[in-house]
Design a protein around this nucleic acid. Sequence first.
DNA 1: CATGAATGAGCCTTCATTCAT
DNA 2: TATGAATGAAGGCTCATTCAT
Lengths: 216, 216, 216, 216
Amino acid sequence: MTGPASSPATSAGTRAERRREQVRREILEAAFECFAEQGYHHTGIADIAARLGMGHGTFYRYFANKRDIVDHVITDVIDRILQALSAENAAGAAATLADYEAQSERIGRALARILGEDPRLARLLLFDAPAVDDALRERVLDFLETAVTLTGGYLSHGIAAGYLRADLDVEATARGINGMILGTVIAAQRDPAAASQERMSRAVRRLMYDGIAARG
Amino acid sequence: MTGPASSPATSAGTRAERRREQVRREILEAAFECFAEQGYHHTGIADIAARLGMGHGTFYRYFANKRDIVDHVITDVIDRILQALSAENAAGAAATLADYEAQSERIGRALARILGEDPRLARLLLFDAPAVDDALRERVLDFLETAVTLTGGYLSHGIAAGYLRADLDVEATARGINGMILGTVIAAQRDPAAASQERMSRAVRRLMYDGIAARG
Amino acid sequence: MTGPASSPATSAGTRAERRREQVRREILEAAFECFAEQGYHHTGIADIAARLGMGHGTFYRYFANKRDIVDHVITDVIDRILQALSAENAAGAAATLADYEAQSERIGRALARILGEDPRLARLLLFDAPAVDDALRERVLDFLETAVTLTGGYLSHGIAAGYLRADLDVEATARGINGMILGTVIAAQRDPAAASQERMSRAVRRLMYDGIAARG
Amino acid sequence: MTGPASSPATSAGTRAERRREQVRREILEAAFECFAEQGYHHTGIADIAARLGMGHGTFYRYFANKRDIVDHVITDVIDRILQALSAENAAGAAATLADYEAQSERIGRALARILGEDPRLARLLLFDAPAVDDALRERVLDFLETAVTLTGGYLSHGIAAGYLRADLDVEATARGINGMILGTVIAAQRDPAAASQERMSRAVRRLMYDGIAARG
DNA sequence: CATGAATGAGCCTTCATTCAT
DNA sequence: TATGAATGAAGGCTCATTCAT
C-alpha cells in the first residue's frame, strides 16, 4: 500500500515473465519496508525474504545483491516523488501569479500527500540512502539537484511571463524554495500531522510573497 | 625539577592528563575523518587506529566502543556548529530590521565558514549519523529542532520589536528559513565554492524581504 | 518418487530434519571431545568446526553460541549418567539386604561402565563445567544433589523394609555413600583400569556392611 | 583473614627483601580472593591489582604471569589443607580404636574448620584449578592422591596395631573414606552451615564402624 | 525455479604482557 | 621500583553470498 510501486506496465511478455515481474516487485516492496523501518545496514537479506515467507536464496534470483536492491528501491522512491511532482506540473502552464500560486499549492499538496502519508519514504531517501555508499549519496544529491532544476524551470517561466521579479537569481532562489520544502519534509519526520503541512504551506507562501518584514 | 616548563597548559591537570586529553582529541579527530570519508559502517576501529599509527587496542583505552565514539564525534560536530551560531548571536540584540539583516548575514557567514570550509562536517551530520541507529537519528533531528527554536527566537524578538510582521507563524516560518539554510548547506556538498554561499545568502535575503513576485 | 527409501529412520521428521538432527549431534559430539580434551576455555568454536571439517559459521546454524553448546553438552553428559542409573534402578524394588546389595552392585557396574569407559565424561562434568560460570557450576552441584536424593531414596526404602538400620541419618549417609562413588570416579581419572572399579566396589561394600573395625 | 597464608618465615633477609615478600603475599592473597570469587578465567590481572590499589604493571615484578600466580595460589591452598591435616596427625600415634576414632574426629574438625570457614578454598581447588590446564589439574589430582596415601597410612597403622580389620584393601578403602570427606566438602558448597559438618561427621563414623545394615 | 545449508571474510572487543618514564 | 599506556594476538559472532538439491 505504502511502499514503492511504479512502472505502469505490469503486463508485457509471457505469463512466466509477468509472474517473475510480480515477485520482483514484491521483493522490492518488502525491501523498501525493511530498509525504511530498520535502516539499510540493520536489514539482512534474510529479513526481506522472511517478510515474504520465501527462502532467502530466492532473493538472489531476482536481484544481484544487497547493494543492487537498495539501488532499485531508491530509484523507485525517487520515481514516485518525481511522478507526484510531474502529475501536477504542466511545466510552464502558469500564466499569472495566481496560476503560479495555485500550481505551487497543488505541487505542495501532492508532495505532502505522498511524503506525509508515509514518512518512511523521506526517512529512507534522506537518512538512510546517503549512508550506503558514495554512489548512492550522489544519486540522492542528484535527485535534489533535479528538484532544484525543476523549481528553477518554474521560476524562469514566471520571469519570462512577467509575474516574477526579473532580477531573481533563479538557481539560488530555487535552492532556497526547495530547502523550505526539505525543511517541511524533515519536520514531518517528527510530527507527521497533516495539519503541520498546511501550516508550513501557508507560512512558506507568506514568506515568499509577502516577505517577513513588517510593512513600513 | 619535573622537567622544563613548556607547553602553555592547553588544559588543566597533570602532564599525563593533558597528554591523555590530547590523544583523546586525536582519536576523535581521526574518527571524524574516517567516518566522514568512508561512512560509519565502512569504518573499522582498525582504520581509526591505523590513521594514527597506533595499535587498535589503544582505541579502547579512550572510548568504550565504536558506538561511543560516533556519539562523541557527532556531539563535537553539533557543538562546533552551535558555537559558530552563538558566537554571532547576541540573542535578541537586533533593534531594527537593518540590525536583524546584518545579524542574519553574520550568522550566515559563520555557518558558511564552518560548514563550507569542511564539507565533511555537514556530510557526517546529515548523511551518515542518521543512519547509525535510531538514537543518533533522533539526536540529529533534535539538533535541527534546536536550530528551529533558535531561529524562532529571533523572529519572535523581531515581532516584539516591531520590525517583523506581527502575523508571522513563528514556528512554521522558522522551519522555512532553516530549510533554506539546509538547502544551502546541502548544495555546498556538491559545489563548496564560497561564492555560492554569497549567492545563496543574497537570494535568501531577497526572497525573505522582497518576495519573489514582481512588484505590481 | 522422492528418492530411495533407505536410512532406517533414526528419528522422526523429514529427511532434512533427520539430517539436521544428525549434524547437531555431530557438533555436540565434537564439542564434547574438544571441551573434554582441551577444556572449555581453550576450545574455540573454530576448533569444534575444524574437527568436523566444516566452516565455523555453520556452527551458529545449530547452536546460539559457545555458552549454549556447553550447556547442551553438559545436559547430555548428565542425562547419560542418569540414564545409566535409572536403567538399573527399579526404584524401591529391593526387598532384602541381599537384593539391595545386588542392586547397588548393578548400579555401580553401570556407572563404572559409562564413566570408566570414557574418563572424559567425568573430567568434563567435574573438572571443566564448574569453571565455566556460576550457572553451570550450580547445574553440576544440582546434579550431585539429585544423586544424593536418589541414594537417599534407596536408603529410606531399605529402612522401611527393615533391612537397613532405622537410625540412619538418611541424607548425611547418602552424601557419604555418594562421596565414595565420587572418590572412585575421580580415582579412575588417573587409573582407568576397570579392575580398580572392582576393587573399589568391593572395598566400599565391605566398608558399608562390615565396617572397618576389627571384630572384637 | 581467610585467604592463603603459609611460609612461617616472614622474616629473613634485608628490610627490602622482607618488604618484597610482604607485597608478594598481598598479591597472592588478592589473587586468591579474585580467583575464588570470579574464577580463574574471569579474573584479570587488573582485577588483582585493583584490589590492592596498585598498578597492574607492578604485578609482573612479583609474578611471571597469570599462570604463575594461580600455581602459587593453589600451592598455598594445598599447603594450608595439608598443614591442617598434619597438625592433628601424629602419624601413627593411635594405639587403640578409640584413639583412632578420636584422631579421625580431630582431623575432621580441622578440615571442617579450614574448609567450612571459607568455602572459597574448596571451590577454587576443586572447581576452578582443574580447568586452568592439564598441569594444574594433575596437581589437584596429585593432592587428592596424597590425601589418599595419608589416609592409607592411618589404615595400615591401624591394621598393624590390630584395631582395624586385617583384610582391608587399604588403598581402596582409603579412597572410599576420602570420597566421603570430599562429598562433605562439596555439600558444604551449598549449605556451609557448620552443623551439617557435625551431622556428616557422625553419619560417616556410624557408616564406617557400624555399617548401614540393620543388626540381625 | 526455489530453497536453505554451508561458508568464511570481516569486524568488534578483550586482556595478558611489555616497556618507557 | 612502580606505573599504566600501548600493544596485538586471539576469538566470538554476523551475514552476504554461493550452490547442491
